[in-house]
Write a protein that binds this DNA or RNA. Structure first.
Lengths: 211, 211
DNA sequence: GGCTAACATGAAAGGTGATTCATGTTTCGC
DNA sequence: GCGAAACATGAATCACCTTTCATGTTAGCC
């Protein structure tokens, strides 16, 4: 049942249709984020969106399709935020700082991201994988370039990207999502940066000849 | 509905009861891990366990209760595996190696851990938090002690613990769960260790006078 | 070996929620 | 302004699931 493929609904052809679809997406994001996928019913989504139950099926084939769409949307937005922030940095370490700052800021403003991505594991493993893969490939490319410039030590960019991404994810969960303040405390941020700096810094003692 | 408290069922008083309960727990673990919480029905669990539907309610008050129990059980086991592995290590770096090895090995053998913990976010946020907090406090204590012995640089053990935990989590997801091989490739493991080493190593350049 | 509490059973009650569809309403090109 | 396509509606259908309960069965204890 959860593995079936369905042909997606065609995109809306009029402004009205587009508006309704957007309203449904926004409502779905809210509902998924607050009550979770299991308890998120189509009725709830349509009620929040202010449209009739049947309207939902004009725009989406079912719960999974709209979920996927929500995930893709959030993923796109967070990646865009991160790359926009880090692209202007003069060097890699600065890029790390700005990238992480943007990530934590996005998390603070859209807690839905975490809450939704974590559920995607079952609802839709493919979209979840794509999300991480996408973030990662951008990240790894940045690391690779920096390595070429000798700014960081020689290491496998992919492994490093996943590891750092994981560090950011849990730190964000712990200090942004779980703390009332809703934003990362500066000392925690600095600590994280210190760790990343240490992990990436060119080692004076050993050469970078690891695989 | 998902926030209600119910008085837990009393523990079984006979070997037979204990056996049935254990069978249900094991079945629940499998079902939650394969089809996910939303699609996991009590019927499915009891069928897999080979008991009648009604029997379930002799031992558990509902789906959430057995889910919580499964999470607590997995959490206990993985923590035990990790601490057993790392406790014999001569120094901190060695302890890191053994701890992570044990973690990846456990992940390979019980993919259910990941799959289930990630769902806990909504089903049961408290248990999920407890799981991470528990792992973390042990980890942080180890780092703190090592810091006292001067084996690693001065840093906030809690932040470091969460960051490293996150790194391990995503690396495990990517290379243990998502890869056919089902165990972490040695080069990836070494890369991760190199990163951790860099992150924790006492810095020759700066002193450890950060918070 | 018989008594009782503990345990197991599965049919049935009662809900919930996803999805369909026949029917209206709006919008847009002409 | 008109006709057709796009869109919106919500009552009705249907599938499935949780939970209860009255009734059997088992096992520990004397």
């Amino acid at each position: 049942m959860s593995l079936e493929e369905t042909t997606p609904r065609p995109a809306p052809r009029t402004p009205r249709g587009a508006r309704t679809r957007a309203r449904l997406l926004q409502a779905a994001e809210d509902v998924f984020a607050t009550v979770g996928y299991p308890d998120a019913s189509i009725v709830r989504i349509t009620e929040l969106a202010g449209v009739a139950l049947g309207t939902f099926y004009v725009h989406f084939t079912g719960k999974k399709e709209i979920f996927d769409e929500v995930v893709r949307d959030l993923s796109r937005r967070v990646r865009q935020a991160m790359s926009a922030a880090s692209s202007a940095a003069p060097d890699r370490l600065q890029a790390e700082r700005e990238g992480f700052r943007a990530f934590f800021a996005f998390t603070a403003e859209h807690p839905a991201l975490y809450r939704i991505i974590r559920q995607a594991e079952f609802v839709s493993p493919e979209v979840m994988r794509t999300h991480y893969d996408d973030i990662c490939s951008g990240y790894a490319a940045g690391l690779d370039a920096a390595m070429g410039r000798g700014e960081i030590r020689g290491l496998d960019p992919e492994v490093a990207a996943w590891a750092l991404m994981g560090a950011g994810e849990l730190i964000g969960m712990r200090w942004v999502l779980w703390e009332r303040e809703g934003r990362i405390p500066e000392p925690v941020f600095e600590q994280l940066m210190a760790l990343i700096e240490g992990a990436l810094a060119p080692t004076p003692t050993t050469d970078g000849e690891r695989t």
